[in-house]
Simulated assay, not measured.
Amino acid sequence: MRKTGNPHQWNSSYPDLRTLEEDIHKHQLFVMEEDSIIHSVFAFIIGGKYK
């Protein structure tokens, strides 16, 4: 994020591995890729406020 001009959304400790694994388990973490190159990763969460 910092490399592409957004230094405030994520930091060196967020998201941590546990958060990413929980999002994967809940089927709310998505990867956009093309030709085996990852272009983005995002969590799409419907419902209450995300911690």
Score class of each variant (00 low, 15 high):
K51R: 10
F42E: 05
P15F: 07
S40L: 03
H27Q: 14
I46C: 12
T4G: 06
F44H: 13
H8A: 10
F44C: 07
M32F: 11
K51S: 10
Y50N: 08
E21C: 10
I45H: 12
H8Y: 14
L20E: 09
K51M: 01
T4C: 04
D23V: 00
I45R: 13
Q9H: 15
H39V: 08
L17K: 15
Q9S: 10
I46M: 12
Q9N: 12
F44T: 01
P15T: 08
F44K: 14
H39K: 13
Y50A: 06
S40R: 05
G5A: 07
E21K: 15
L29S: 03
D23R: 13
E21T: 08
E22M: 11
I46H: 12
H8W: 12
I38E: 04
K3V: 08
S13Y: 06
R2H: 11
H25F: 09
T19A: 07
K3M: 04
P7D: 00
S40F: 02
K26Y: 09
F30H: 09
I38M: 03
Q9D: 11
Q28R: 15
W10A: 06
K49Q: 04
N11H: 05
R2F: 03
D35S: 11
S40M: 02
A43D: 03
L20N: 02
F44V: 05
G48W: 02
E34Y: 11
P15G: 05
G48P: 01
L29K: 04
K3P: 02
K49E: 14
G48I: 03
E33T: 04
T4D: 14
H39R: 13
I24V: 15
S13C: 05
R18S: 11
I37L: 09
I37M: 04
A43H: 00
I24C: 13
I46G: 11
K26V: 04
M1D: 12
D35P: 00
K26A: 14
K26L: 11
